[in-house]
């Protein structure tokens, strides 16, 4: 037989037990989260992934090579795009190779008209105008970088951490 006071005590006990269990569970989950979070650094000691390359008007029509950053800025009127100049094979700087006559080629099921290509001087990899390799040891396309405009001074900002499609253009 259970007396009233014993029942209340049991209820209290189970309530206390639930709180204890809940608190510890929440605490351990939270602690677990902080441990996992600590594995992801807030910021790294490394060169910036996003940097200014100059005012858009400073770039000449066509291809502009920025040696210090290893990339090309391509200007077509008011449209800008940027492609990496680092060969995807072993990281040599690829060369801008203008074609004598524009040619239409089929790349990945799409036809593109190209006026220039990128050729790597080290091991002979060749890339189409859109960065797709078609000859030599390079395993993948030259990445296209996201472009932005710096809000404070209107300079062109290249974000090399974000790859974009070869059709990406920023209009200024």
């Amino acid at each position: 037989m259970q007396t009233g006071s014993e029942g209340a005590a049991n209820g209290r006990r189970s309530f206390l037990g639930k709180i204890t269990l809940g608190a510890f569970a929440a605490a351990f989950l939270g602690q677990g989260w902080t441990y996992l979070r600590a594995l992801v650094p807030n910021i790294k000691y490394e060169p910036p992934k996003k940097f200014k390359v100059g005012s858009p008007v400073e770039f000449a029509e066509g291809i502009n090579f920025i040696e210090s950053k290893g990339l090309f800025i391509i200007r077509e009127g008011s449209q800008y795009s940027s492609i990496s100049a680092k060969c995807t094979h072993l990281g040599c700087t690829v060369k801008y190779a203008p074609l004598q006559h524009a040619q239409t080629v089929k790349v990945g099921g799409r036809e593109i008209t190209e006026k220039y290509e990128f050729h790597c001087p080290c091991h002979g990899s060749k890339f189409r105008q859109n960065g797709m390799p078609y000859s030599g040891p390079a395993p993948s396309s030259l990445p296209w970088h996201k472009l932005e405009i710096a809000p404070e001074d209107g300079q062109l900002v290249v974000d090399i951490s974000t790859s974009v499609d070869s059709d990406f253009r920023i209009t200024i």
Partner: peptide, 23 residues
Amino acid sequence: DKIIFAVAGLLFAAITFATIVKD
């Protein structure tokens, strides 16, 4: 003991929560 245990648990949870918020 049970009460101490519960309080410790709550304290532990509170500290954890505070740490996460502070961070």
